[in-house]
């Protein structure tokens, strides 16, 4: 199974091995072995260069590890740390219970320091989403939300595949794997809302986030 940048090779009891997709051909001995699913929190924390990863679905998951897990519960715990909420979001999608929230609705309910995001212009949204959410260097999620209740596309700068749950946002082949779990985005994340504030305030970053 593939989820984001991770390959899961499942064993009969639901456990199995997790590793970075780029490390598929590495010998086991070349990778650092982890057997505690709680280690996933630490592995997801920094990228290869040691930079903090506030966005877990950014395409910068650290390399060089493999995780061998005893059972399905351990595998689920690890995946929920690597990609919080995404396993559950896909299950809800499959069950017809995933209800995306338009961006304008997300911004419209903000209070306090984020209330100002309601002033963001259509042009600013187009540029921000086109840059921040792009799969190449931004975020590997598949966007399911619309810009507004009228159904406008989030950004004209993103390709149609960005909104297609059957498309692998990593751009890599997935033919050889039995199943594929897309990282679905049902609502703009807190990081995008924070960036929207910075855009409205005319800053490149709001600093105290």
């Amino acid at each position: 199974m593939i989820i984001g940048q991770i390959i899961v090779r499942e064993s009969a009891n639901g456990g199995g091995e997790l590793r970075h997709r780029d490390d598929l051909k590495c010998a086991d001995g070349e990778l650092t072995l982890h057997t505690d699913p709680e280690d996933a929190v630490g592995l997801a924390l920094y990228d290869d260069a040691g930079a903090y990863r506030p966005l877990k679905t950014a395409p910068n998951l650290r390399h060089g590890w493999r995780m061998v897990l005893a059972d399905g519960a351990a595998a689920r715990l690890a995946l929920d740390s690597f990609y919080p909420g995404r396993r559950g979001a896909f299950a809800a999608f499959q069950a017809g219970r995933l209800h995306p929230t338009p961006l304008r609705e997300t911004l419209g309910r903000q209070t306090g320091m984020y209330r100002v995001t309601q002033k963001i212009t259509e042009e600013q949204i187009d540029a921000l989403v086109g840059s921040f959410c792009r799969s190449d260097g931004g975020c590997l999620r598949t966007i399911l939300w619309k810009r507004d209740t009228a159904g406008a596309a989030p950004s004209s700068l993103l390709p149609s595949e960005k909104f297609d749950p059957t498309h692998d946002q990593s751009g890599q082949t997935r033919e050889q794997f039995a199943s594929f779990v897309p990282l679905l985005c049902q609502e703009a994340c807190n990081l995008l809302v924070a960036k929207a504030r910075a855009v409205v305030k005319g800053k490149s970053s709001s600093g105290k986030e």
Partner: peptide, 14 residues
């Protein structure tokens, strides 16, 4: 979390 993932709006999937 308010500022990190999973965000609170992910509550149905946790």
């Amino acid at each position: 979390f308010w500022k990190e993932e999973p965000g609170m709006r992910d509550w149905p999937f946790l």
